[in-house]
Every structure is written in structure tokens, then in C-alpha cells.
Design a protein around this nucleic acid. Structure first.
Lengths: 249, 249
DNA sequence: TTATATTAGTTGTCTGATGATTATTGAAGT
DNA sequence: ACTTCAATAATCATCAGACAACTAATATAA
């Protein structure tokens, strides 16, 4: 963990434990004294927190806490453990294992995970529960070559990230997610115990390790009544370069 | 525009014009020489680009371009003009004005926009077209007090951000958006010329000006066939503090 | 009372140096 | 020929101190 990262989390804690009226942070030199580091490190930490939307700075005036961002439960640009997410929403988490098998990767998987054609993948499906009610259905696919050691099937029941970390030494750093609305078909309605035709969140994710190589492909279905996904969108003043005429025609 | 911001866009351009194989950036001292600035500024600019996911840095090795992020058309964490978005998707944009009226703010609006009870708001609704096909339906609500000058109704047809900037001197800096899946009811199906019960993106946004005051509330409905919203989700290793038992029970 | 100048405090930028990490090179040994 | 290990150069991370630019409050003058 770099010094900046450490400083970031220290300031985060400082913000969380500050009173609601104190929407002003100590000055940069004072923070540097408090946290025993240089002003350069403080400034980089503050820059990260500013991009995260947690604070904002005014030249010549000071650094302030953004009150509007507090109280957001689930930020879309952050990846949470399913269990964690369910707990954050105020429920007791649970898992029900659904499926597990080895298969040849289809062409779209070969593309997304940069596989050799015909390479084998491990596919696991789980339903996550909040107070015994199914709220998330998730299919995870990982290249079989990553799994070197023997493993027990039970290890694939539940969060796959921990399996990837402990059994494959693959630590997910970030992922790129496409967010889409869908309606529940018969199968999803049964799995998630919701009405046929009711709206669901559908996320299609590609997860990357710390070396920026794709290592996991996921399809996730969320019941929207249980999760409120929020995202901070920043204004772009960028000039677009060039535009394909009909990209997917 | 601060020097760092300027440097960021210069490096962005450098990345875009670089060849596909060149996934390595010049070193920090060299960039400082090239862009005629100090290394401190370069480093802060690189930090921003790294958080944006555009590049990544390896201690002792260098700074590299993230190839996986190229080719994303619409990033959810960035706010685009509707016209711009439609153009980026490869279509010709258009607008059809729907509604415009003054009314008393309801309680949920009073909350979101920090209004005085009973304050008046201006509400405008538009349908945005891609090659003459309706693809976005959007309702914008702004406090009436912001509109000091006289205005022509036509100014409210189309993007409201430019109206806010030019007529109210309110420049939107960012917004907080809740993303939800919904199904088209009869009214939406007619407006967006899609099937009853088909899935739609529904965004509920609160826009803030540069002083972090809420100035606009929007409801947006997108036909998902036309837009592919992607978001980069970073791993959180943060310790949750405390959890409400049943936040909205 | 109003307008203007002063001043203290804060963030933005710059310079130069040192520490830590990585990848490469070359030499030694097998 | 191959491996192993040490030295080396390149690069990013952090540090210290200074000055510039800006803001908000204070003091002063009209």
C-alpha cells in the first residue's frame, strides 16, 4: 500500500468522524503535520478524494467536504462484495449455489477474455439472498488454465473473487461493466422469485487483474427494489475526435 | 482552466494520436520538457488520468496506456450533451418539444433541490431523436427563481444546460444519478415508439453548479438499443463503518 | 454607510534533490 | 550454452522549501 493510499484512507476516516457542521478540512500544511507526511503526498491524496467527489477545493479559500455525497449506499463506480452489498442495504446475506461446469469457450468469451480459440473455461452460477429472499443472480466465467491447484466444489459457491485470489493468485483490480435494463423472462422470474416481465438490472462485467489482463467474465442480475445504484457524473468539456458513421450497423 | 487541467487534455490528445503499439508514455521529466511545465504538474495530471482509467503507472518501470478502455463510446461517469451522445452513437440528432409549464414544487422536489416549501419551478419535457427515431425522453425541472431575465419558449426546447448557463449563469459541474431499469408503460411506449413492456434505462439526476448547490432535477428515459453505458468499477478495500439496520423499512 | 486598500490564510505551481522499485546488462560460475 | 547473481541505469514515489495566485476578512478612508 503506497503512502498516498494510506493517507487517503486516513483522511477518509477523518471525514467520517468529523461532525456534520465541520464541512471544512484543515489546511494542507496542517494535514501534513497531523499525518506526518509531506505536503506533496497530502495534495495527491486530496486530489484523489476530490475526483471521488468526496471533497472539493477552492483556490485561496480551503478544502471542503461535499455533503451531498454522504448517505449514498451503493456507488456504481465501486465494486463491492455481494455479501457486503446486501449487508449495506440492511439485510442478512445468504447464498444458494446453482450450477458449476467446465466447457469450451464461445466466441464472445474468447473475445472478452483474450482466450485461445477452444480454450476451456470454468462457469459457476449462484443466487444471493437477502433475508432468505433471492436478490442477485450471477454467472461467473474464468479461464480454466488459471486454476492450477485442486479445489473443492464448495469453494465456487459464493464470491468468486476470493477464490480467484486464494486459489489462482489473481487479484481483481477493476472491471469494465456495461449496465442494461432487462425484463425478467420465465427462468429469471423463477430464480429471483419475481414477476414475469418485471424490470431487472443486468450488468455484464469483464474483470481485470493488477496487470490489466482480463481474468473473469460475469453476468449479474439484480432485483432493483433492493439496491439503489448511484453514480457521480462529471461534466465533460472534451472535444470529440472523430466519429464512426455507423459503428454497429 | 487550471494548468493541470490543460496538461491533462494535452496528454489525452497525445494518447489519442499515438499509435496502437505505443502503449508506453514518455517519462515524467520528459513530458515536463515536452509540455513546458514542471514535473509536479505532470504528476498531478497523470494521477487524474490514472484514476480515469486511461493510463496506469508501475513504480520503477513507466507509465502505460490502458488499451481496454479505448473504444468505449459512452461512459456513465461522464455527462454528455444529448446531441453529442446521439452523434457519438452514430446517428443524426434531433429534438421534439413536448411540454413546458410553471408549477409549485412537490415535496420530493423541495427535498432534492433544497427549495423553500411552495416555491415555483419551471418544468420542461423533450424527446430526442436519432435519425428521426425517438430515443430519449427527458423531463427537466429548475427553480423558477434562477430565471431572472425574460426568455423565449423556444430556448427551453433542447438541451437545458446551455439555457442554464446562458440565461441563469448557472454552470453545471457534476450530478448525482440513480440508475434504474424500468419497463415502458403505455405513455412511454407511445412517446418513444417502443413496445409496451420493453425495458428502458431510467436515470434520476440532481445536477449541481460549481458551488455545489443543486440547481436541476431530471428524469431521463433511454431506449437501451441505442446506447451502451459502460462504467469502470474500482475494487474497494475499504472497511465499512457502521450499517443502519433497516434504512428504508 | 459605502467603497477601497491592506493583510493573513489557503491552494496552485515550481525547483531540485533523494528514496524505492523495476528491467536490463554483464560477469561469474556451472 | 545456460543459469545465477550483482551492478547499473531508468523510472516512479516522496520529500523539503519557496513563491505565485487567489479568497475572504479586516482595517482604512471617503
Amino acid at each position: 500500500m503506497s503512502k498516498v493510499e494510506h493517507t487517503v484512507s486516513q483522511i477518509r476516516q477523518l471525514i467520517q468522524t468529523s461532525h456534520a457542521e465541520e464541512h471544512r478540512l484543515p489546511s494542507e500544511p496542517e494535514l501534513a503535520r497531523m499525518l506526518v507526511t509531506s505536503r506533496a503526498t497530502i495534495r495527491q491524496a486530496l486530489a484523489e478524494l476530490e475526483m471521488d467527489g468526496l471533497i472539493y477545493r477552492k483556490h485561496g479559500s480551503g478544502t471542503f467536504i461535499n455533503q451531498h455525497i454522504l448517505g449514498i449506499h451503493t456507488r456504481l463506480e465501486e465494486v463491492w462484495d455481494f455479501d457486503e452489498m446486501i449487508r449495506l442495504a440492511g439485510y442478512t446475506p445468504g447464498v444458494r449455489h446453482q450450477e458449476l461446469h467446465l466447457e469450451q469457450a464461445g466466441s464472445e468469451l474468447v473475445e472478452s477474455l483474450s482466450l485461445e480459440p477452444g480454450e476451456e473455461v470454468l462457469s459457476t452460477a449462484n443466487v444471493f439472498l437477502a433475508n432468505e429472499v433471492p436478490v442477485i443472480y450471477c454467472i461467473d466465467v474464468i479461464p480454466a488454465r488459471l486454476v492450477s491447484h485442486a479445489y473443492r466444489e464448495e469453494e465456487l459457491h459464493g464470491p468468486v473473487y476470493t477464490f480467484l485470489a486464494e486459489r489462482c493468485d489473481q487479484h481483481i483490480d477493476h472491471n469494465i461493466t456495461e449496465v442494461r435494463p432487462i425484463v425478467a423472462d420465465a427462468r429469471l422470474a423463477e430464480l429471483l422469485e419475481c414477476n414475469l416481465g418485471s424490470p431487472l438490472h443486468y450488468f455484464e462485467e469483464i474483470g481485470y487483474n493488477t496487470s490489466h489482463e482480463p481474468v473473469i467474465f460475469s453476468k449479474e442480475y439484480y432485483r432493483p427494489e433492493f439496491f439503489r445504484f448511484k453514480v457521480i457524473r462529471k461534466m465533460t468539456t472534451r472535444h470529440p475526435t472523430h466519429v464512426d458513421e455507423h459503428p454497429e450497423a
